[in-house]
Design a binder for these strands. Sequence first.
DNA 1: ACCTGAACACCGTTCAAGT
DNA 2: ACCTGAACACCGTTCAAGT
Lengths: 249, 249
Amino acid sequence: MVADGPEIPAPPWRKQRAGRRRDASRRPLSRELIVDTAIGVLDAEGMDAITMRRIAQELGTGPASLYAHVANKDELLEDVLDRIAAEVALPEPDPARWQEQLKEVAREIRAMYRRHGDIARASLGKIPTSPNVLRIAECELALMRAGGVPPKIAGLAVDRFAQMIDADCIEGTVLAGKSPEGQDPHEFYAAFVPQVRAYFEALPAERFPNIVAMAGELTGGDDDDRFEFGLDIMVRGIASYAEGRPPAG
Amino acid sequence: MVADGPEIPAPPWRKQRAGRRRDASRRPLSRELIVDTAIGVLDAEGMDAITMRRIAQELGTGPASLYAHVANKDELLEDVLDRIAAEVALPEPDPARWQEQLKEVAREIRAMYRRHGDIARASLGKIPTSPNVLRIAECELALMRAGGVPPKIAGLAVDRFAQMIDADCIEGTVLAGKSPEGQDPHEFYAAFVPQVRAYFEALPAERFPNIVAMAGELTGGDDDDRFEFGLDIMVRGIASYAEGRPPAG
DNA sequence: ACCTGAACACCGTTCAAGT
DNA sequence: ACCTGAACACCGTTCAAGT
């Protein structure tokens, strides 16, 4: 803390350097602080609001200053991902419940992504190398090994599993991102689905017999239902390779 | 065709309007032509090169001119997706082979995306409503219904299926996008994987026993292997719900 | 060593004005 | 009706210069 008396205005002829001189009482710039700020912006306004310029502004400086601490935006996003990955609670493996436990982990990750804007977009396709993300992969591998899933299958499955969760969370934000300014995305979505259903039902039945007949099923579930279904068929598929147990049914 | 003699230069004092007057001999602007041009740019340089400005430039005009024919960039991308979706060859359903046929369709879609840059990014999360995309969904539904998959399951599966293919294709381009200027992305990737493997192997074994032990499996398959595996467990999961047949094994 | 202003080379979209 | 120039409000990143 610095003792600060009432501020004396700078002489007006000493032109003001755009007024964005960093307040000396603030924490000095650091990678930590930049990541903190990015997460703050992310939580409040979503991933599109994470720009180098915006974060710099939040810190009372210009975008160029950030580059002394992070190589580029990609690296910053990686740090953000690692930091929030630490929030994911992981179970102690119980071989009898490995399939349910695997689903629990997936739900935890999804909930974490949902708390933090749409940052999943920055995860898809990245090879995990940061500690907190690896910690999650380690747990998934342990669960599958406990369940008798062969190493080769488990190795592939952990990749596909992460991809599925990323994709689901991205998908969840695409439509939300289209909802008009200020309107609740959930409401917007709820109002949109019946229109899609009506559209499917009105399609020419000769060309699209199944879509017309199954318009209800195609537009039925909400996003949680779809996620659970995807999780379910994936875990069933993985379980069908587990040694010494019948395929889940 | 217009008869065109040798061009007479405009008087230099009649200042040149930036020299980008549209050549009158070209096809007039239209939604068709804009989509054509976008696909050309996409195929040659990838999705990041699809910008309103770039397409306009390709057509010898300014970006504002495009807005007379497409509402915005999103709508343009939707048109691009519909156009290329027409390239996907679809099988006649054979109930005995429905699982393999479903996989074939997935492979066709993936091959189509790979021919066209990384446009899959524009598909993830979008509800399909355009005819050529619906045509694919219709076929998938027909295959699953032929295989005895209950309507509710098939309705959810068609959504998850598309999501998985989109995600796989996006993933495939993320790493490629990181390969340094000019270098072959495939080579770059091939050189990168052993480094990741070495990194996994060098991790502290107390904290990451499974990652260390399975470093080989985790970095083993190429992108085709991973895609086929994801397809396999997904179809197995779907098949486990088919009526009147045992889960695939 | 750390930070900064200014610039570079871009974006999507709007809008008044032209033909 | 169709097209355009110019502008608006942005991007990520670099670099010479300051402290």
